[in-house]
């Protein structure tokens, strides 16, 4: 299993992501955003968290023009798996690889805390090792995590089971930290090979740091 992680100027979770996948025994590689192709043999392409281009203009809005993003589109259209975490999710929506958009949190503050999430759908590679409707505890850390999609788009997400994760309390009841439509924390595309989420599973790999719930999430990719 070979994981390739994209580094834009301003990315700051690339090493955390690499550390997490290495713990799972994966081969990993960090590539600079000016690369024009996805390295051969890549099983999973990760767009890691951070502040690509300082989040200037709009989170992810400049990163989508980087050369690697053209390669990522080709990779996805050939069925390659892509995971976008936090800023990576923002980049994927800006690039049109995932539907919707991420706006400023409705309290206008950056929010950093552990947050519970409900597993909405396990019929996909990413969450295949999780149990549907179970609750996981995963850190969130974002300023622009307020997921928006119009009503038609939301209906499509629901119809196609594209909603992967929603925000909830420890008992699984819906609570909404940032104003996201339908409390959405993560989605997939209709082909189920591109995944995006605002929470950071790579920060929840060891109970020493407060939670190991991210392990069973990222393990979903191990069979690739």
């Amino acid at each position: 299993m070979k994981v390739t992680i994209i580094q834009f100027p301003g990315t700051n979770c690339e090493y955390d992501t690499e550390y997490a996948f290495k713990r799972l025994g994966c081969e990993t590689q960090i590539i600079w955003h000016k690369e024009e192709s996805v390295p051969a043999g890549t099983d999973l392409l990760v767009v890691a968290g951070g502040f690509s281009y300082g989040d200037y203009l709009r989170s992810g809005a400049i990163a989508k023009f980087s050369p690697i993003m053209n390669a990522a589109k080709t990779f996805a259209s050939n069925g390659g798996k892509i995971l976008g975490i936090c800023n990576g999710f923002q980049v994927l929506t800006e690039a049109g690889l995932l539907p919707g958009a991420l706006k400023r949190n409705d309290n206008l503050h950056f929010i950093s805390k552990h947050h519970h999430l409900k597993i909405e759908n396990t019929d996909n590679t990413f969450l295949s090792k999780c149990e549907k409707d179970s609750v996981v505890n995963i850190p969130i850390a974002h300023h622009d995590g307020n997921y928006y999609i119009d009503q038609d788009g939301l209906a499509d997400l629901k119809k196609n089971n594209q909603i992967l994760l929603t925000y909830c309390d420890k008992d699984g009841s819906e609570i909404n930290p940032n104003g996201s439509v339908a409390s959405i924390a993560g989605i997939t595309n209709i082909q189920r090979n591109v995944f995006g989420l605002m929470p950071h599973p790579e920060r929840a790999m060891e109970s020493l740091l407060g939670s190991a719930d991210g392990v069973k999430m990222l393990e979903g990719f191990l069979e690739l």
């Binding site: 700051n12 090493y15 955390d16 950056f110 950093s112 850390a141 407060g210």
Partner: peptide, 8 residues
């Protein structure tokens, strides 16, 4: 308001 967990 501070990212306290980055760098894991």
């Amino acid at each position: 308001q501070y990212d306290s967990m980055v760098q894991t």
